[in-house]
């Protein structure tokens, strides 16, 4: 129940910040629209756009979540909450719940704009594309919750994006198919969450019905999400170290 109170509180904070809300919901569709004219080639754009649908929400939610939780750590509110009868899991799940809702709205908007505004057909169905985009945004959210523990300033938090997300974007098969990469890079990509997010979106975009491989990708993504949440909860400390 306290996770729900925390989620409601985070959403109220966002509601007081309309500029951030506009940026969260408007930027991914605008970037997709921009991409269409950057490619200026329907064939490339059709192949590329569904993958971007998974990547944009992930990057944005990663940044928003890591900075929001870092702010909580720095302002003393996290420390105050940890002196109260609140479980660490309630705090972290509260954040995850609030940002999941935001991520879901963002992913739905971006998917609908892509399909109905930019004319991209998703062979596997709109609803599955939305599920994949939401899963990807959730990955970004939980990674942000986790990495905020290792940043002391907003500058450091932002630097985690090139450090942690860019290598995943390069290795997920967006630019070069994974089986054409150097073997060592392909093996590394097997252990990165964005690889499965990207694979799932590719399968859905390619068409056909939902199969075992789709389920396998989704289970792995959920595993990463749960793993990041649990490790995120472990990074919250009730007591400062002394010697």
């Amino acid at each position: 129940m306290k996770a729900l109170y925390t989620a409601a509180r985070v959403l109220k904070q966002l509601a007081h910040d309309p500029r951030t809300l506009v940026l969260i919901f408007a930027v991914p569709p605008l970037l997709l629209w921009l991409l269409k004219y950057v490619f200026n080639n329907d064939l490339f754009f059709t192949q590329f756009a569904p993958l971007m649908l998974g990547i944009f929400p992930m990057i944005m939610m990663f940044l928003i979540t890591s900075i929001a939780t870092l702010r909580e750590r720095k302002s003393g509110t996290l420390s105050r909450l940890m002196s109260m009868p609140l479980r660490k899991s309630d705090f972290i799940f509260g954040y995850a719940l609030a940002f999941s809702l935001v991520a879901a709205i963002q992913a739905v908007l971006a998917t609908l704009v892509m399909i109905y505004g930019l004319g991209i057909e998703i062979g596997g169905g709109t609803s599955f594309a939305i599920i994949a985009a939401v899963a990807s945004a959730l990955l970004g959210t939980t990674m942000g919750l986790f990495t905020s523990a290792f940043a002391r300033t907003e500058f450091q938090a932002i630097q985690f994006m090139p450090a942690l997300l860019f290598p995943q974007i390069l290795l997920c098969g967006l630019f070069v198919a994974r089986d054409q990469m150097a073997t060592v890079l392909a093996r590394i990509s097997d252990w990165l969450p964005l690889t499965y997010s990207s694979d799932l979106m590719k399968r859905i975009a390619a068409g056909g019905s939902w199969g075992v491989d789709h389920t396998k990708d989704l289970i792995i993504i959920c595993g990463f999400i749960i793993g990041f949440l649990l490790i995120g909860a472990l990074t919250i400390r009730r007591q400062e170290k002394t010697k």
Binding site: H16, S75, G76
Partner: peptide, 13 residues
């Protein structure tokens, strides 16, 4: 109950 020197409240609420 504890009140620290930091404000430790949400200024956007």
């Amino acid at each position: 109950a504890y009140m620290s020197q930091e404000l430790a409240v949400y200024d956007d609420l």
